[in-house]
Amino acid sequence: MTRTWILPILLVLCGSLVSTGLLFSGSPGEAAAFLPVFVLLAGVNSPLVFPRSMGALEAQRRSAADGRPVVFWRPGCKYCIRMRIRLGRNARRLYWVNIWRDPAAAAAVRAANNGNETVPTVVVAGRPHTNPDPAWVREQLA
C-alpha cells in the first residue's frame, strides 16, 4: 500500500520545498502558485483519482456476470490516468484492479502481455486489450 503513495508524497514534498524557497527569496505570489500545482499533480497520481479497486478474482467474477470490462492499472501510470480522465463518469462502471495490490492481477497482466506488466490492460469478454483507446473502452460499456 505504501508503494502507491510514494510518488504523490514526493510531489507534495517537492512542491513544499520549491514554494518555501520561493517564499524566502521574496516571491510569495510564485510560491502560492507552485504549491497548488504540485498538490494537483500529487492528487492525479494518487489512487484517489481511480474508483475503488477490487481483487482480480472478484472483478473477473462480476465481469462474467454482467459483461462490464475489467481494467488492470497501477498508480502513477500516465496511460491509466489518461484513460480514467477521458472516461469521465463512465469509469465508475468499470471494474478497476490495482496490480500493485493484487499479485493475481499482476500475474494476469503478465500472462496477457508476454511477461510484461503493461497497463492499462482492459479485459472485455475474457479477451485482454493492452492500452486501448478510451473511446473504444467507452463503446464497450454501451
Rank of each mutant, 00 (worst) to 15 (best):
A107P: 03
Q60A: 11
C14K: 09
P103G: 05
V122E: 08
L48P: 04
K78Q: 10
M54L: 12
G21E: 11
V44E: 09
R68Y: 02
V18C: 07
N113M: 05
V18D: 10
K78E: 15
R52L: 15
R92W: 14
M54Y: 08
L11R: 00
G115N: 07
V71R: 05
S25Q: 12
R74Y: 10
L87M: 10
A33H: 06
A31H: 08
T118Q: 12
A111T: 11
P36N: 06
A104E: 14
V49R: 11
I81K: 00
L41V: 06
N90R: 15
V44G: 06
V12Y: 08
I99S: 02
Y79G: 04
S16D: 12
S25I: 05
L35P: 03
V71D: 09
V122K: 04
P75C: 13
E30C: 14
N45V: 01
S25W: 13
M83Y: 02
L48I: 11
G67I: 10
V70I: 08
G115Y: 06
P47I: 03
V70A: 05
A106P: 06
D66Q: 10
K78F: 15
I81D: 06
R93S: 04
R52I: 04
T121A: 02
V122Y: 13
V119L: 08
D102C: 04
L41T: 04
F24N: 15
S27P: 04
L13D: 11
W100F: 15
P69C: 11
V97K: 05
V12N: 01
G55M: 05
A105G: 08
P51E: 06
L17Y: 05
L40T: 06
L48C: 07
L22N: 07
G29H: 13
R52Y: 14
